[in-house]
Design a protein around this nucleic acid. Structure first.
Lengths: 189, 189
DNA sequence: GTCTATAGGTTGATAGAC
DNA sequence: GTCTATCAACCTATAGAC
């Protein structure tokens, strides 16, 4: 897949991140130990510590990989004409641009509520950035319930993912359901 | 509030459960130790182990406290006429019957994805029961996407709770947004 | 019912040889 | 870059005095 442009000659690093994301999602951040990750990779803890200074550093790298997506959305919003359907168009752009990688990130977030909040406190998460998007998409006079509803429109993928737990729904099913939900949630009838 | 009918003369037990739920929600099941819970109660670990045989036993008691809610919903559904709007009526009944206690339970579930799945594997969770509700509310010919959409209608409180993270929205705001979402998600337009 | 003391295991992280 | 060996700190859980 050739997508490790950032650090040339460090395929081990991205291998570690791939496995770590998988285990953190499956068992939770605290539930998956450094040893678990190392063994899944066929190496020892110490070797892993050569590549990452700490367990938190792995987490940070995992987030860094995916942080500028919301920035892109923000830039796009600023170029848009301020039509009444701006909320719907923006939310749909977000939902429609959801690929396998972002889905994996959302699965991770669902499995790690407390950790995500710890990151939010540090200002390193991407979720708090969403407030900014909504600020620009909604008029300044918007009420708390209106903002909440807008947030739900953006979060519909996450909601669909949650609803799909324990079912046989495919990723395509999830994304289709999310899109439909976003449309309904941005309906001003 | 006098709601410990089940075990007379065991207020300590319910006090432990109250604090445990709070800490498990805040820091996650693995993130909150038995010692943390004991200290928050002003007692030692050992005293706590007098009341509960294990950490998992606390978790089990926490779930047991809230498991028959879906059974009640199921019984209610069976009494209903099979009108076309049965899905909406049932989902709204669920959302409208959401009180502070169930909200707390949902916050817990959000903070403990992996633990909830471990419980689901044991068949002790209440989430898998929801599949049964949907089976009876939807025609047998319903497709996977249709079932997914129905599940989202029931999960709207959870979704609103998730959207409200990091905002100033009150519980009332969350419930109002959830209701609205449920209405929209059960709209056959 | 609550305590002290402790067992027995796992965790994240480090030192240093190769 | 990877290893063995080790550490201090934490965990769940138990034994036994009061």
């Amino acid at each position: 897949m050739e997508n490790d442009k950032r650090r040339p000659g460090s395929e081990t690093r991205s291998e570690i991140l791939r496995v770590a994301l998988e285990l953190f999602t499956e068992r939770g951040f605290e539930g998956a130990s450094i040893r678990d990750i190392a063994e899944a990779l066929g190496m020892t803890k110490s070797s892993l510590y050569y590549h990452f200074a700490s367990k938190d550093a792995i987490l940070a790298a995992l987030m860094e990989n995916r942080r500028d997506e919301v920035d892109d959305l923000l830039a796009w919003v600023d170029e848009q004409p301020r039509t009444p359907d701006l909320l719907r168009r923006t939310a749909l752009r977000w939902v429609d641009s959801t690929g396998e990688e972002r889905l994996q990130g959302m699965r991770f977030a669902h499995a790690n509520g407390p950790v995500m909040q710890r990151l939010a406190a540090d200002g390193t998460d991407r979720r708090s950035l969403f407030g900014t998007v909504i600020d620009r998409v909604l008029p300044g006079s918007a009420t708390v319930p209106e903002r909440l509803r807008a947030q739900m429109a953006f979060d519909s993928v996450s909601a669909a993912l949650f609803a799909a737990q324990g079912t046989t729904a495919s990723d395509a099913d999830v994304l289709a359901a999310a899109r439909e939900a976003t449309v309904h949630l941005t309906d001003d009838a």
